[in-house]
Nucleic acid binder design. Structure first.
Lengths: 187, 187
DNA sequence: GCGCGTTGGCTAATAGCAGTAGCTTCTTGG
DNA sequence: CCAAGAAGCTACTGCTATTAGCCAACGCGC
């Protein structure tokens, strides 16, 4: 029989397809194997376990998100920057509803790329705060605040947590304005 | 053989014990059955499925959280109220790390108690906003903002998302102050 | 073009899970 | 006190991850 020609990267790519199409919860080794045209145990030649695959999916998702954020922040500052980053964050999460939750997994310390991607995402927010004259421990607090608001909003929206019919876009716009107001008053 | 004397409520109670001790992810019918001293299929006499049990756990958790929030808000207003509610929210989530994620499940429309509990929680925040002179659609936006910030913070904290060593209590304090600043400027 | 080691597949099997079918026995209302 | 419903049970299906051990394909040196 001819070989399938898999590799760790190929397995991760198939996993990402499944996650994109059917959500993170649908990611099983059985599903990956079927889509890759291979028997389930064969995957263990490329991936240590389902959990390890999830971790790699998380790394890929985090890298993509970090890229979207830093791209959005590039060349902007102040309200302009925070708005661009917030919009990019929400947009990416809505466009990739399967990948977004994977992003929340804490990075594997032994995967330098994963750690770097997570740091890059946080650092992007950190950099935006410079324009507000926030630095040091204050910047840590403010970054946590911004991350909390963004993650909370996107996560509630994604899981259908906003029951009322009012316009969600408008609510997010107000959230961004509020972040600006709060950051201006941070010192 | 003597009967175990189970009931739907008893099954839910056992489920809550497991969730408190080992986290929401450890909630399986097999585990519930073992702790209840019963064979797994017996549970189906009291609960329709694992998913239905999760929903009931979610309802119980939401009711408890709503109670904590409205208790905290009682008799307070303005910064005082928002701080009390925020502290109660975080405190409850930290004390019940297993139950908190269950809270995020969207209520079963056919379970009036569950729906009522969720509405009560949202309404508590809603009421706090009255002291800030926020009403109507503005109140919806502001409530979503507050929920997002609180949920985001607690959820990131709970999953170990705050990697840096800086004091998390202090960050939360600053978050609460920022909510106050933002709400004051809401109109 | 030939051997050979490495590697990437495979089948078979174990163990844990949810859920169904159908039987039995306890409990209780009339 | 007895009939029927409720609450257990065993046996089974089918899905999942994961391990063990086998075998064939591929690539490299000759």
């Amino acid at each position: 029989m001819p070989r399938a020609g898999l590799s760790t990267q190929a397995v991760v790519d198939v996993a990402l397809e499944i996650v994109d199409e059917h959500g993170l919860g649908a990611l099983t080794l059985a599903a990956v194997a079927q889509r890759a045209g291979v028997a389930p145990p064969s995957l263990y030649k490329h991936v240590r376990s389902l959990d390890a695959l999830l971790q790699k999916v998380s790394a890929a998702a985090t890298e993509e998100l970090a890229g979207a954020l830093s791209h959005a922040a590039a060349g902007r500052s102040g309200l302009d920057a925070i708005r661009a980053v917030a919009l990019a964050y929400r947009r990416w999460a809505l466009e990739r509803p399967g990948r977004y939750p994977a992003t929340q997994r804490v990075p594997d310390p032994s995967d330098p790329d994963h750690v770097a991607a997570a740091e890059r995402a946080v650092y992007t927010v950190f950099a935006v705060l410079h324009a507000y004259d926030i630095a040091g421990d204050d910047a840590v607090d403010a970054t946590r605040f911004v991350r909390s608001a963004l993650h909370g909003f996107v996560s509630l929206e994604g899981s259908g947590g906003f029951g009322l019919p009012q316009d969600v876009d408008r609510s997010f716009d107000r959230l961004v304005s509020s972040l600006d107001v709060a950051l201006r008053a941070w010192r």
